[in-house]
Nucleic acid binder design. Sequence first.
DNA 1: TTGTATGCGTTATCAT
DNA 2: ATGATAACGCATACAA
Lengths: 353, 353
Amino acid sequence: MSKKDSVTIYDISKELNISAATVSRALNNNPKISVKTRELVMKTAKKLNYKQNKLALALKSGRTNTVGVIVPYINRNFFSAVIDGIENELSPHGYHVIICQSHENVELEANHVTTLLNTKVDGIFMSVSKSTEDHDHFQKVLNEKVPLVFFDRKKDIQGVSSVTIDDFKGGYLATEHLIKQGATRIAHFSGNLNLEIYRKRHDGYIKALKDYGLPVNEKWIVHTNSKIETGASAVSELWQEKTVPDAIFSASDYAALGAIQELKKLNVSIPDEVSIVGFSNEPFTKFMELPISSVDQTPVLMGQIAAQVFLEQINGNQSLSIEKKVVLAPELYIRKSSNKEKNLKGKPLASME
Amino acid sequence: MSKKDSVTIYDISKELNISAATVSRALNNNPKISVKTRELVMKTAKKLNYKQNKLALALKSGRTNTVGVIVPYINRNFFSAVIDGIENELSPHGYHVIICQSHENVELEANHVTTLLNTKVDGIFMSVSKSTEDHDHFQKVLNEKVPLVFFDRKKDIQGVSSVTIDDFKGGYLATEHLIKQGATRIAHFSGNLNLEIYRKRHDGYIKALKDYGLPVNEKWIVHTNSKIETGASAVSELWQEKTVPDAIFSASDYAALGAIQELKKLNVSIPDEVSIVGFSNEPFTKFMELPISSVDQTPVLMGQIAAQVFLEQINGNQSLSIEKKVVLAPELYIRKSSNKEKNLKGKPLASME
DNA sequence: TTGTATGCGTTATCAT
DNA sequence: ATGATAACGCATACAA
């Protein structure tokens, strides 16, 4: 802490009566240094327990070997899994990962961007908060020529790379699966349709219905959020009509869980009377007594790919701003909540646990 | 990126024909600067979009306003919740949080410590990996006079603060609760007893049995880990004997889940024939059709307290190494898996959802 | 092969 | 109240 307690290249240079420059070169394996001095330097460096001060290096080089990650909440399975992927991919390359939480708040998000830029991170990864409309803080990042990579929740901005999953396909896969299970009256619990991810899941649902010649019933498209209660109340409302759905595709696992809980109260059997598929493949879905089918977003892979995109960018030509849009394929995990058949076979796009 | 694109105090000084020192002082609200110049500086700083380079500041001051957190896996509810607590507490103070994963590997852990020290973090938080025996890398941190705070999994080291929960009490509470539910043959699924946390949970279990005059049956203390399967196989073994337990206190929620699954196969009714309490209060425990009672470790609070301990340390007298050991009280969440009574009342230490 | 000098962007010390 | 200069620790262009 007290600063002058760490040994520098000057300490080594004094010890050996050579210049600090020589020490620096020896330490960096500069070829034009004699083997003898190099070894000598290395030895005394070890002896004095020298450690390179990354701060000075960063100030000089302009690179900190640190990246920032901004997520709504770190304490959420999906996001922590993405961070896991980023960290694992970047750590071997000597990068550190700074995490920030936006709490779905644009101002906090913008503040984090500012402070990350001030600490001169080499790149920023982020999943934009739900409340974000403004693009100013993204532009700031671009102005500083710091690579920016969106994951999952993105904004379409010139020069910004992104890694997302194909939410449309996720919605389509889920719905198609329900159709193939024999469902004809499929309800959809959607999230906020102003958000791209939910709109696409919704669109995939609609497309599947149309592709298979099923009617779209607006009444069966219910706006829920990621709370258990909203799924439950959606069911209790839907089940007051005379015609009830025989399947539900929920854009949220939590709403799906709420739906299941409510249906059990109503003595509706799952999956026989109603089949259900959720979204996100939250850990709890597979632990349930009635395991819930769900669309997996491959978050760890998403983080890894995002990290790779960043590495490409940082190692490539800085001047030309490459913009890479990676779209990952979601994976449908079929579990009991939607599986009427005892033995599942020949479903190439799906996995069964 | 390309370095000379960010504006410095020199740019401002040139613009105003004053010295950089004056600019620096004005920016830092140094009282001995004229109001006029200060305002002038502020204005042009804004105009030129000046941003303080934290790197230079860090090099000069020796403080980075960054802390490192090392956890086994970030993608684990408990740890991400602790990090959440740390981040939320420290962020308002201007600190950034670097996260590292040890993957329960001592060498990785030690490497992370080294690189964190090289980047001159202002403090290190960590939950030591299971494989950690060596104390060398902890000593390094102390040598650099960098505050070190252990959370949950700690090592007893002179001068190192720690925030843990009272695992003994957790084990005691869980067991006592089972006893009060009428159980007399309580099995314990323990983790690795070489680890302090599991040993203490075990000890709490033993103490409760003794306090209530119940015999300790070594056969009913089964070594499991945090896998569902180990809980299931533990049950299938125990249930081959003629005398079976009427309750299980599992040091892991996952093992508890496995036990429940297996017991259902054996048509043993829960909680009537067997009551079960797990540990950690994993999110899934409350989502189950048969919600699982569990001991909560208050991870977010743990992170917050750890952060506070760090702040005290950093703001206090650096020379005297204060060592603070905070032990948090665990909270027992009583759910159906152990709740025979319909209405629960007068349980001060426990919560009911 | 090695040394000297300089700069990265700040702040602090010493003058003025 | 302000300016000049050094220092934080390192790497490098230029000399030698």
